[in-house]
C-alpha cells in the first residue's frame, strides 16, 4: 500500500473524474477508534456511472462522504477533476490543509443527494434550488430563479414550484434535492442511498430522474440497494465489504457472475 502522502499528480486531461487512492478513514481515537475504510482505490471515468453495493456498515456512505470532503480522510488521497481534495501539496511534497473557503469551493463542484433529502424546510422548492447559486455563485435572484424553474421542470415538478418540502411527498422532495444539486452545475454527482427512505411506490420516479441524468452524460457515483438500477444504468459496479472493495467490474460480470464468495452471499440476500 502506498504511503498516505503519496498523492498522485493526475495529468491534465485525464479521463478519470475521480481518483481515490489507498484511502483510510478512522473515526475516533484510541480505544473508541473505528477503522471504517481500510485502503480503498477507486477510479471513476468522466461521464460514467459507478454503483457501489455492499451490506450496511461496509463503508459505502463513508467513501462517498470522503470524496466531497464531508469527512476528512485519515490516509491516502482523493482527486476530483484533477484537484487534490482538501489539501495543497508544496514543492517539497508536504501536505497543507486547505482553508475552509477553498474546501467549500471544491465542494461546490460536486453535487450530493442524501438518503433523507435534507431540503431546507423553511424554503419553497424553487428557493431551495436557488439558494446555492445565489449565495455561493453570486447569481442574481432573477437569473437563479430562471435556472431553477428549468431544473424543476427537468425533474417533472413544475406544478410544485412554490410548495414547501413538508407539502411534498418523499419522492418529490428527493427530486427537488436532485435539482438543487444540479443547480450548481456539478461535474460529479454523488447519491447516498437516494431511494432508501422512500415508500416503495415512490422509488421509480427518483430512479427515472437519475437515469435521465446518467443518459445526459453526468459522472455519477451511486450508493444504493437497487440492483435493477445497477444492472440497467451502471457502467461499473463496485462491491464493498468491511471497509475494502471486494470486487468490481461491469454490472453483468459482478452481478451475474461474481467471483468472490462475499459478493455471492450478499447478492443472494438482496436478489
Amino acid at each position: 500500500m502506498s504511503a498516505p502522502t503519496d498523492a498522485p499528480a493526475v495529468p491534465a486531461g485525464s479521463t478519470d473524474m475521480v481518483s481515490v487512492r489507498a484511502v483510510h478513514k478512522v473515526f475516533g481515537h484510541g480505544h473508541d477508534a473505528v477503522h471504517v475504510l481500510k485502503g480503498v482505490d477507486l477510479d471513476v471515468p468522466r461521464g460514467s456511472v459507478t454503483v457501489i453495493l455492499g451490506p450496511s456498515g461496509s463503508g459505502k456512505s463513508t467513501l462517498l462522504r470522503c470524496i466531497n470532503e464531508l469527512e476528512e480522510i485519515t490516509g491516502g488521497s482523493v482527486v476530483v477533476g484533477g484537484d487534490l481534495m482538501g489539501y495543497r501539496k508544496d514543492d517539497k511534497g508536504i501536505l497543507h490543509r486547505l482553508h475552509p473557503k477553498a474546501v467549500a469551493r471544491q465542494r461546490s463542484r460536486i453535487g450530493m443527494v442524501f438518503q433523507r433529502f435534507h431540503l431546507f424546510p423553511h424554503m419553497t422548492a424553487v428557493e431551495n434550488i436557488m439558494e446555492a447559486p445565489v449565495q455561493v455563485r453570486g447569481l442574481t435572484k432573477k437569473a437563479a430563479r430562471q435556472r431553477a424553474l428549468e431544473l424543476i421542470e427537468r425533474v417533472g415538478l413544475s406544478d410544485r414550484t412554490d410548495h414547501y418540502p413538508a407539502q411534498l411527498s418523499g419522492g418529490q422532495q428527493q427530486r427537488v434535492a436532485i435539482a438543487r444539486a444540479l443547480a450548481m452545475d456539478p461535474e460529479l454527482m454523488l447519491f447516498d442511498e437516494p431511494t432508501s427512505a422512500l415508500d416503495p411506490e415512490l422509488v421509480g420516479e427518483v430512479l427515472s430522474v437519475m437515469q435521465d441524468l446518467a443518459r445526459s452524460g453526468m459522472t455519477m457515483i451511486v450508493v444504493t440497494h437497487e440492483i435493477g438500477f445497477a444492472r440497467e444504468v451502471a457502467d461499473h459496479v463496485v462491491f464493498m465489504d468491511d471497509g475494502v472493495i471486494v470486487e468490481s467490474g461491469p454490472p453483468s460480470r459482478v452481478l451475474d457472475d461474481p467471483r468472490e464468495q462475499r459478493t455471492k452471499d450478499f447478492l443472494a440476500h438482496v436478489l
Binding site: S108, F114, Q135, V136
Partner: peptide, 20 residues
C-alpha cells in the same frame, strides 16, 4: 443534516449559519 446539505452545496460556515 441541514448543515451537511449546505456544506455539500459549497456554502461557507457563516452563510450556513445565517441562511440555513
Amino acid at each position: 443534516g441541514q448543515t451537511e446539505a449546505a456544506k455539500a452545496l459549497g456554502m461557507k460556515d457563516g452563510k450556513i449559519m445565517r441562511r440555513v
